[in-house]
Design a protein around this nucleic acid. Structure first.
Length: 715
DNA sequence: TATGAGCGGATTTTT
DNA sequence: TCCGCTCATA
């Protein structure tokens, strides 16, 4: 491939980035639809074919497996060869690879296993029960959140000073128990993959030097999504000789609640000098009005790096805006519009229905069914997260490695075989005292048990041993095929005709057949497959090509595009969500989310909101989202409600935060509550006796109150 | 050990 | 309202 071939189809900014000199590190601010993946892949192709950089000297990091797969595919096409075990992967995937390559130096045995979020929760739950920590007071979710948050920041229990905060104290206690459990059982959770591989390099200078020298070029996708640990991780690999090439878009940062730090983009300027900032602002995706409206929206955010998308593809159609009476009306409008598009030749899978929260999908589903339009909903359990799949994998793990505790606990009594809690406790206790693993403990303890329990347990031990023997010489797919039968899983689900569990188990064999094992040389094929199941739980090497209308949250739509997009539920309290209402920085993130949603559309964008919505078992009245009033009116095409209700001129509510009179209630007004004291009205919704008021109290925090009960006094 | 009543909680979820 | 989880019961 020659230079012209690489550069030809790029615009100025893109080719400037691709052919950047060998002196600078780069921050490429790539707006939505500006050809970010193209720049990344072409940069690599440029380095390899023009600068004679060896492909092993390149480290390319993404966040999702989807992005990784796409990049690998495009790269092998550009380079016209398979890229095999080139270091192109997700942060977690490559961290995992490092640990597999050097387990001992990372204080792990070679058989260490990944603990996914579900397993993690189960472990925490057990530990809390064993140590009499009350789940009611200290919810498992919160404990799990606490632990992961610390790890994402690279914080170990020893680094935490709980002070006098009882909740932190207890959380720390759980953290300590959890960490001990993981260390004792060779378990690595997602966050730990990063921390541990970071420590591996940090504590082994010669290893670190090796990788610093090896990776002459480090490229990172979606840089705005890096968390503290990921930033530290790449910073550690940077020695000043090698070059960083970061691509990101601060306006599309929508995961700060998961620990992503937009500030990392700013830190680049000091930590990776000399840095060249390149902006990709030409958009190849959306038509003019969509782009201008999106620009206008995001301009309301403070602290941006600054960027303005433009396009030469013309204004296109105006953005439709529909005010629905309720969520059913909204769904009917959206689905009947889709029907019209389809009738006019638009492919159903080019229509995307986007919403803020999963609960909103229901109304759309019902309408789609009514109109007989096939649809696909994204979200929910993914293939490798399904119970029956995890059960099968647990058998596979146990056969592969008897000492796998998580696997043992999962299937020792599933399908049920009469091994109860009492027996299990004895096994755990024996293992603890004798410093052995559960399977060995089971073997030792079985003869000492009462006859029924002894038989049950011996049955399980023999089952595993027999499966081990039978599968010794089988390849992976045959192994899986054998074990789903022999374990009794297939039989267990056989008479369950309502679910697709049996089909899923069959599907697991297909997944095993497809698994290529090309880039995991440090593991056996079986181990590689097991790891893949944790690291890429989607179970699809590529996004399923469907002909269906696509329904998903805006978060999951990031990175996707549709010719026709419906961005729905644009109501205060829903989008932006109620939880973000008091916090300007959270509102900014909601606004970015809205920006992401809008910029998914190529040709046609339709926005909608409902004045009344049935949510959590009650009707909620809501105002149109403030984001709507931030869009330039000339770019919008308000659509008259189908049932002839007079449309309110919501655009008059230009600044939502300003006082909106409603009887005595007005936003910003000071009130006094008998118990909570003085406060300011932040918001209110509903009418008559069901009016709810949000008040920010000076001392009692922010609360929603029913105004007819709260007896607020105006001051 | 399988089922159902009763409960609390209900944004978003890359790995 | 609806889902997931716990606990009591047969």
């Amino acid at each position: 491939m020659n230079l012209a071939e690489i550069i030809n189809k790029l615009n100025d900014a893109q080719s400037q980035a691709v052919a950047l000199d060998s002196v600078h590190n780069a921050l490429v601010l790539a707006g939505a639809g500006s050809g970010k993946t193209k720049v990344l892949t072409h940069r690599i192709a440029y380095l390899v074919t023009q600068k004679n950089v060896h492909i092993d000297a390149i480290l390319a990091l993404t966040f999702t497996n989807k992005a990784t797969n796409e990049m690998r595919e495009r790269l092998s096409m550009l380079l016209k060869r398979p890229i095999g075990n080139m270091w192109v992967g997700t942060f977690h995937g490559l961290a995992h690879r490092l640990l597999r390559a050097h387990p001992a130096a990372a204080n792990l045995t070679a058989q260490f296993q990944i603990l996914d979020a579900q397993d993690q929760s189960r472990v925490i739950k057990r530990l809390m029960k064993e140590n009499q920590i009350d789940e009611g007071q200290f919810p498992i979710k919160k404990m799990q959140w606490f632990i992961n948050q610390q790890k994402d920041e690279g914080i170990r229990p020893a680094d935490i000073d709980a002070g006098s905060n009882y909740f932190v104290k207890k959380s720390l206690e759980v953290f300590v128990l959890y960490e001990k459990y993981c260390n004792d059982n060779n378990l690595i959770d997602f966050a730990e993959l990063l921390v541990r591989s970071y420590e591996l390099l940090k504590n082994n200078p010669e290893l670190l030097t090796h990788y610093q020298r090896r990776f002459e070029h480090i490229l990172i996708d979606e840089f705005q999504d890096t968390n503290t640990m990921q930033y530290q991780w790449v910073k550690l690999l940077f020695n000043g000789e090698n070059k960083m090439f970061c691509v990101g878009d601060d306006d599309q940062s929508i995961y700060s609640w998961r620990g992503a730090k937009i500030e990392n983009i700013v830190k680049l300027e000091t930590d990776f000098m000399p840095l060249k900032i390149i902006r990709l602002e030409q958009n190849y995706r959306s038509t003019g009005y969509i782009l201008k409206a999106s620009n206008a929206l995001i301009a309301h955010n403070k602290n941006r790096m600054g960027k303005s998308l433009w396009s030469d593809s013309g204004d296109g159609e105006l953005i439709d805006l529909y005010e629905a009476r309720n969520e059913v009306d909204e769904a009917d409008f959206v689905v009947s519009s889709i029907q019209k598009y389809i009738d006019n030749g638009v492919l159903a899978n080019e229509c995307g229905i986007l919403y803020r929260s999963n609960a909103q999908s229901r109304a759309f589903e019902e309408r789609l069914i009514k109109y007989n339009i096939p649809y696909t909903i994204y979200g929910g359990l993914r293939f490798f997260e399904r119970a029956e799949i995890k059960d099968a994998l647990a058998y596979l793990r146990l056969i592969e490695n008897n000492s796998d505790r998580v696997a043992f606990e999962r299937v020792v009594n599933f399908p049920t075989r009469g091994i109860g809690n009492a027996t299990l406790e004895k096994i755990r206790e024996f293992a603890q005292i004798n410093q052995t693993h559960l399977f060995q403990a089971a073997i030792n303890i079985a003869p000492t048990l009462p006859i029924r329990a002894a038989n049950a347990l011996t049955g399980f031990i023999q089952l595993i041993e027999q499966m081990q023997n039978a599968t010794k010489n089988l390849d992976l797919p045959a192994k899986v095929a054998y074990l789903i039968e022999a374990s009794g899983l297939v039989a267990h689900y056989a008479n369950d005709k309502t679910s697709s569990k049996t089909e899923n188990l069959e599907e697991l064999i297909a997944a095993a057949k497809q698994y290529t094992h090309e880039d995991d040389n440090d593991m056996s094929k079986t181990m590689g497959f097991i790891a893949l199941a944790s690291l890429d739980s989607s179970g699809e090497s590529n996004m399923l090509a469907t002909k269906n209308v696509q329904l998903m949250t805006i978060h999951s739509a990031k990175g996707l595009e549709f010719s026709h997009v419906f961005l729905t539920g644009l109501e205060e309290g829903l989008f932006p969500s109620r939880q973000s209402q008091d916090e300007p920085h959270l509102i900014d993130e909601e606004r970015r989310l809205c920006y992401v949603g809008m910029t998914r559309a190529r040709q046609k964008l339709t926005l909608s909101f409902a004045t009344k919505r049935f949510l959590h078992g009650q009707s909620i009245y809501a105002y149109p989202s403030r984001f709507l009033s931030e869009l330039p009116k000339p770019h919008l095409n308000p659509i008259q409600q189908k049932y002839g209700v007079i449309q309110k001129n919501y655009q008059q509510n230009d600044t939502f935060n300003q006082s909106q009179a409603k009887g005595d209630l007005s936003i910003g007004r000071t009130v006094k509550h008998a118990k909570f004291g003085f406060g300011t009205i932040l918001n209110f919704e509903g009418v008559g006796d069901s009016t709810r008021v949000q008040v920010k109290f000076k001392t009692a925090g922010t609360k929603w109150l029913i105004s007819s009960y709260a007896n607020l006094k105006f001051v």
